[in-house]
Amino acid sequence: DHDVVPEDKFQETLHLKEKEGCPQAFHALLSWLLTQDSTAILDFWRVLFKDYNLERYGRLQPILDSFPKDVDLSQPRKGRKPPAVPKALVPPPRLPTKRKASEEARAAAPAALTPRGTASPGSQLKAKPPKKPESSAEQQRLPLGNGIQTMSASVQRAVAMSSGDVPGARGAVEGILIQQVFESGGSKKCIQVGGEFYTPSKFEDSGSGKNKARSSSGPKPLVRAKGAQGAAPGGGEARLGQQGSVPAPLALPSDPQLHQKNEDECAVCRDGGELICCDGCPRAFHLACLSPPLREIPSGTWRCSSCLQATVQEVQPRAEEPRPQEPPVETPLPPGLRSAGEEVRGPPGEPLAGMDTTLVYKHLPAPPSAAPLPGLDSSALHPLLCVGPEGQQNLAPGARCGVCGDGTDVLRCTHCAAAFHWRCHFPAGTSRPGTGLRCRSCSGDVTPAPVEGVLAPSPARLAPGPAKDDTASHEPALHRDDLESLLSEHTFDGILQWAIQSMARPAAPFPS
């Protein structure tokens, strides 16, 4: 592969990997390779389809078979030569091979799209000592099968071997295949498990690692696999990028399955594409389908809103127990993405979901129960707010008499603000006073009005108090039968009158 990737590009890729991570280095090298001529790309395919690569990765054979028959990708048995050289000459001794072996032994695996480039050397060096003999053996194999790289107009793939297949390693990572398949204008990513390549439709969760975000852009890794992070704060999961590491605690105790298979379609829109997988259930989501939507993949363990709600429900009964003089119970939860139609709101002032922060849900004790107040519409209280300059209440639009249902020339009671006709409430011909108009209920007259088809109010509507207090003497005590009587009149003013009279009014101040 030294004929494909020059030394300066190799060093530039290593520097970019240390600065921005393996995914960015892979993407940059792939983009550079696509700008080369067809001879360089053909050399790339020839390096990929060597015999030892085909033996190690069985899924490469179907890719090789898909090439046109007129494309010669065979390799000479006596060494490598550029395709432009007409004579089959043995190339001179390859010093770059020693360079590659020494550099890969030092860096474990470079971040390139060629056999030198995919593992994360920093994480491997940190986690190597417990498994040094086995990992050293794996390093000797890295130059042979560490990076199976493929690129063409139909298929483009980048393979990364790992030393996680050490025997006896619980939940060992089998390997990473960062794979971009450009077929019919689409893009897919796969993962390699035990020599087999699994596409998103049959993606397997190998051991402790999972394909957290099938994305090839942005600074985030394709698999949430930063070796420096180790395990999740809650004892979460091992990262795919942690090559040759000792077994780590796999999943939280509440995880239903340690080796679950995540779905390959969004649980909201039932469509495929780039998904984020939940650590607590097999569901996966688009970032845009979450509520609120996320802009980037959160670091650490992530769970959907259903799993978060289940966790909150487990903690909430203990938080609601009476604990005198104790601060509110704080339950730190990872930043969760909410699927459509589901929402768990945190306290005000918290950062938005999706940031690399930890939301704190506070379970406050329930407030003391209070008697429910009568629910009145805002339009129902409008007549009470229509007060004239002299303190006389004006008529609201649409006000109707509670007896006849007519809204023409209605009066407004100064005591309960109900609309009424003087002739309907006082049919006996009582003279109307000039000021202080009161309806039949507030004036103490319980004589029913002779209106055909309208039920008369119940005599129990009024329960006047002592006459010594004029204001308190007109406080009506309405009961269920009074409400039914008012409802039978089918008037809004009657219902409003009952609601206003049912509310307690402050006692009249004593004259000074």
Rank of each mutant, 00 (worst) to 15 (best):
Q501F: 03
C386Q: 14
V446G: 08
L395N: 11
E475V: 05
P511I: 12
F420N: 03
P293N: 07
P317V: 10
L478W: 10
R440V: 03
P397N: 12
T447S: 07
C266Y: 04
F420R: 02
A366G: 10
E452Q: 04
S458F: 11
A380C: 14
A477G: 09
C401I: 02
L275I: 08
P433G: 13
G241C: 09
P476Y: 11
A419D: 06
V329Y: 14
P457T: 12
H363R: 10
L483G: 05
P282I: 10
E484H: 02
T408A: 10
C304H: 15
H474L: 10
A477L: 10
L487R: 02
P457C: 13
P282T: 08
P389L: 14
T301D: 03
A380Y: 13
K468I: 06
V446M: 11
R438L: 07
A428V: 12
A288D: 07
P365S: 09
P511H: 05
G444C: 09
L395C: 07
A366F: 15
S485A: 07
I495K: 01
G336N: 11
A370W: 15
A449R: 05
P328V: 13
Q243S: 09
E263W: 14
A463H: 13
Q242Y: 14
R318G: 10
L486E: 08
E390A: 13
L395D: 05
G388F: 14
E475K: 02
S379H: 13
A499S: 02
E263V: 05
G349S: 09
A418P: 02
P334L: 07
E342A: 12
P335L: 10
H259G: 11
V387I: 07
A399R: 10
R438K: 09
A449N: 13
A456H: 12
P298H: 07
A380N: 04
P327M: 13
H474V: 12
A370P: 10
P327L: 11
R438V: 03
A353V: 09
L250P: 09
A284K: 03
A370I: 15
I276T: 09
A371F: 13
A399H: 04
G407K: 05
V451D: 02
W422E: 12
T301H: 07
P334F: 12
N262T: 12
P466C: 07
V410H: 12
A319G: 07
M355V: 15
D377Y: 13
L496T: 03
P249E: 05
P397F: 15
Q393M: 14
L487T: 03
G453I: 14
L385K: 04
A460M: 13
T414C: 03
S485Y: 14
V387R: 10
P332N: 04
C413P: 04
P322I: 10
S378Y: 11
M355C: 09
P509C: 11
K362E: 06
P450L: 05
S306A: 12
V344W: 15
